[in-house]
Amino acid sequence: MASILVPVLYIVLVFGGLWAFSSWYRKRNAAQVYEPYFPQHRERDLYISLLQKSDPPAPESLLKAALVRRAMTDVTRILRIREDKPALQILLQKGSIGDDLWSSVLAAEKEMETELLEVAAEANAYVEGWGQVIFQTASEMMANERMRALLERVPAMRSEAGECWLV
């Protein structure tokens, strides 16, 4: 006579096994730390260090300048994510890259979202309404600085071109 015990034991074993695996798997996934997509945000570190400086405190002009530099790095990162994400998505679909890289992109995107809000809030704390403009300012500054660097490189380019020409 078959006991009811055998099917019950079977069900407990199967579902218990499934449950154990799923909980272990989820715990492992949650604990996994993805390699950050961007290197250390040094402009942000400097800005916060400047804020924390007390004797003597950093003057406001310096803090504002540091905040603009922070925003400039943010702008580069945002542009970089916007550029990389579609390409990475295609690579992910093809299986050319792993989930790790994709997860780190998503994490970076989320972090940047928060970062932008923080910078805008900081800017508004200095001057009301600056938060709406600071990223625009930052992106113009990036472009202008690049052009200025190009202009400064002209003498070096000349001697380089001259050397190529002589050889």
Binding site: R42, L46, I48, P56, L62, E113
Partner: peptide, 28 residues
Amino acid sequence: PDPLMQAVIEASFRPVNFALGPPENGSV
């Protein structure tokens, strides 16, 4: 801002060793 992400950002903070320079501590 998302408090969770804020915590992540805060955790990634590494203090920078710097000094203030002229004029009137206006430079790093």
